[in-house]
Structures are given as structure tokens and as C-alpha cells.
């Protein structure tokens, strides 16, 4: 499943997509510690799979919470993506 967390508003589209098929069998859970804001958690989803998700309280403001990792210039690799060994995380912006 591709789970898109975030939103679109007048200023743009801000989604973090987690491909939960890649989460299966991941025991590393790098996303939990990789994100400096602690936005990720691992849960048992509606289909009883163990997957990562963005915590509820961050979903309406990821544009702002991710801002520190997205400077306008000299953007380093995103820590969440770097920490996710199965490569399940993508950002839309």
C-alpha cells in the first residue's frame, strides 16, 4: 500500500509517501530514530501488517516540520530517507 501523509493547500502539495509493502519484514525501523522530529512510528495496520506511519499530530503541518531538513540551498539527503533501509519513504516536494 502507498500511504500518502500530508496535504495539498493553496501553496503546494506536501506529502510523505510510505510504501508499506517495503516496510514488511523491516526489523530495523530506522525511520523512528532517523527523523529529527520523531514524526514516524511503527504500528500494526488494519490488515495486521507491521508498517511505518506518520504520527497523527504531524500530518497537518509536515511542510513546516520538515522545513529544517529542506533548506532552500545546499540540501543534504533527507535523514528519514537515509535511515530507511528498505527505501519505503518518498517526499513529494
Amino acid at each position: 500500500m502507498k500511504a500518502n501523509y500530508g496535504y495539498m493547500d493553496g501553496s503546494g502539495e506536501y506529502y510523505i509517501t510510505i510504501d508499506t509493502d517495503h516496510c514488511n519484514n523491516c526489523s530495523h525501523h530506522g525511520c523512528i530514530t532517523g527523523c529529527p522530529k520523531g514524526m514516524f512510528q511503527v504500528i500494526t495496520d488494519d490488515y495486521d501488517d507491521e508498517v511505518a506511519e506518520i504520527k497523527e499530530e504531524f500530518r497537518k503541518k509536515i511542510k513546516y516540520d520538515c522545513a529544517d531538513c529542506k533548506p532552500t540551498t545546499d540540501r543534504p539527503p533527507l535523514p528519514c530517507q537515509a535511515a530507511c533501509t528498505p527505501g519505503a519513504i518518498t517526499h513529494s516536494w
Binding site: K63, Y64, D65, A67, D68, K70, P71, T72
Partner: peptide
């Protein structure tokens, strides 16, 4: 202000 500050952080 929080939203503005996060925007300012992006430019430094």
C-alpha cells in the same frame, strides 16, 4: 509565528 519561523529557517 511558528509557520513563519520555519520558513525563515529554510533560508537561514
Amino acid at each position: 509565528a511558528d509557520r513563519i519561523v520555519s520558513m525563515v529557517r529554510r533560508v537561514g
